[in-house]
């Protein structure tokens, strides 16, 4: 199927401990607003974390600054022979599961959607999903 990303990444995403920590740190810094960013990879392996600007209003939405996204997708990442492998955002006050909004606005089916929950401020956690044609499937992250 043309929508599948790099082999293996569909069912298990190798989010490294320091990338996990970077996303949680970003989420905490941005709270009570949602944070957002992307992870770029090469040959299916995540290699770069790019925190991005959330241009959405209020505390319950995110939209990655389209200018930053365009620069990454069309300029920086092709130059580096890399591609977007994951998109992350935070749910500052709710569980790490795709909301209806997340599903409706999932325009990047090839990417893994990582959601960081700060619902319990002392126990932040991240889960990963693919969202394709309205279907949510969980992607295994390293323990």
């Amino acid at each position: 199927m043309s929508e599948s990303a790099a082999p293996g990444i569909d069912t298990a995403f190798p989010l490294s401990p320091e990338m996990r920590a970077a996303i949680i740190a970003h989420a905490r810094r941005e709270a009570p607003r949602e944070c957002c960013g992307i992870i770029a990879g090469r040959d299916g392996a995540p290699v770069r974390v790019y925190p991005t600007t959330n241009i959405a209003e209020g505390n319950r939405f995110y939209e990655i600054d389209p200018k930053e996204l365009a620069d990454l997708e069309f300029r920086e990442l092709p130059n580096e022979n890399a591609e977007i492998v994951a998109i992350y955002h935070s749910h500052p006050a709710s569980p790490a599961y795709p909301s209806r909004t997340d599903v409706e606005l999932a325009f990047w089916p090839e990417a893994v959607y990582l959601i960081c929950s700060l619902e319990d401020p002392d126990k932040p956690y991240i889960r990963g999903f693919t969202i394709r044609d309205g279907q949510i499937a969980e992607v295994t992250l390293p323990a």
Binding site: P17, E18, R20, A22, I24
Partner: peptide
């Protein structure tokens, strides 16, 4: 430093 405070034992 923020990352270390999240998961300093993991790296």
């Amino acid at each position: 430093r923020e990352m270390t405070s999240v998961a300093g034992d993991d790296f």
